[in-house]
Computed example of a mutant assay.
Amino acid sequence: MGLIGISGMIATDTLDHTAAAPAQPTLPRGLAGTPDDKEMLRAAVELTRDIAVARPEIYWPDMLASAALGYGALAGAILSANPFIATLWGVVAALALYRALLFIHELTHIHKNALPGFRFGWNLLVGIPMLTPSLMYEGVHTLHHARTRYGTADDPEYLPLALMKPWSLPLFILVAILLPVGLLIRSAVLVPLGAVIPPLGRLVWERASALSINPDFRRRPPEGEFARMVFWQELGASAWALFLVWWSATHGWRPLLIGIAVISLTAVLNQIRTLVAHLWENEGDAMTVTGQYLDSVNVPPPAVLAPLWAPVGLRYHALHHLLPSMPYHSLGEAHSRLKKHLGLESTYEKANYRGLLPLVGRLARSTMMPR
């Protein structure tokens, strides 16, 4: 879903008429030059050790209830003859399925043995039915957290959006509308064809098997246990996609089209959330952990709508970059502890923002600045 690539910046020597001047070291720009706040980093670890364990009694009911509400509301949208009522059901379905879908983010960070059966259950109930199995994010999102990759051309989830043209922002959002159609084509056509045409299979894996926004990102071939997991997830998603096409062709396209509209809305919500998850101001330099934190965004209470557009703990995205393995249900408590311990004048406070609209406005104004 990337919009434009990142071009590298090349430093050149300046020449006079007699000799080349010595090369000057390239200094980090913007937040990339931020030194680590060791007090904040130490406090983040020490103050949260007792809440760092994922609790199955929270994960399972939350995921199951979100999925059940989502599918129930989707059925209501499909079965309702009243367009207004159908639309209301569709909005409820989009919000609930959006929450259920975003557990894919948790799957990339929790230890594989932390929640027995949760990965399988989520893929069976959410990932495969929505044609977004966890393979699309596992092995990808963790690269975004790598110390030497974040904000660079090697980061699959980063583009310097704040430094791009104003038209790039609406395009970034609008392209998400086409995501469910692309996922259907991928699983129903491209993956099966790729199984019998190896060059196509490699292309689909490298270019169309990751939830990334960097168009230059290429996935490496899966190996070992992950490769086996990819095989079964792809098989399940392709079988489901082919069934959807067959059933729609023989029984009518209305349910599938309504489903596509609902998933399009979830994709747009996620794209808007992505738009404000970071400040997107880095120009390709490697960043310190503190620099990554300050380039990321928390929208803590009292922002009342944040749990809708940034569910499953993603309203604390900056804090998540300090503590990537912290379970989503503990982020609110971790935030309260750090804010109380470090104070209102600390580095920690600088990544906290009031809400969605101020962040969108800040980003839009940044794209309009002359470069």
Rank of each mutant, 00 (worst) to 15 (best):
Asn352Lys: 05
Arg365Met: 13
Met1Ala: 11
Thr108Cys: 15
Leu115Arg: 01
Ala318His: 03
Ser209Asp: 11
His144Gly: 05
Phe243Pro: 00
Ser238Tyr: 05
Asn298Ile: 03
Lys112Asp: 14
Ala241Tyr: 08
Trp89Phe: 15
Val245Ala: 09
Ile78Met: 12
Leu235Arg: 10
Leu15Trp: 13
Lys350Leu: 14
Pro199Asn: 02
Ile10Thr: 14
Glu57Asp: 15
Ala237Cys: 07
His251Trp: 06
Gly332Cys: 00
Ala43Ser: 10
Leu265Phe: 12
Met63Cys: 15
Met136His: 12
Ser168Ile: 08
Val175Gly: 06
Leu184His: 07
Gly33Pro: 08
Asn113Met: 06
Leu331Arg: 13
Val140Gly: 06
Ile128Gly: 04
His335Lys: 02
Leu107Val: 09
Val304Thr: 11
Pro28Lys: 01
Ala210Pro: 03
Leu115Ala: 01
Leu269Asp: 07
Ala67Phe: 07
Leu31Met: 07
Val175Arg: 15
Met368Gln: 12
Ala77Gly: 09
Ile185Arg: 04
Lys340Cys: 03
Leu101Asp: 13
Asp155Gln: 05
Glu349Leu: 01
Glu106Ile: 04
Tyr137Gly: 09
Met326Cys: 11
Val245Asp: 08
Thr34Ala: 12
Pro255Lys: 01
His141Arg: 04
Thr347Met: 06
Gly121Trp: 12
Val196Glu: 05
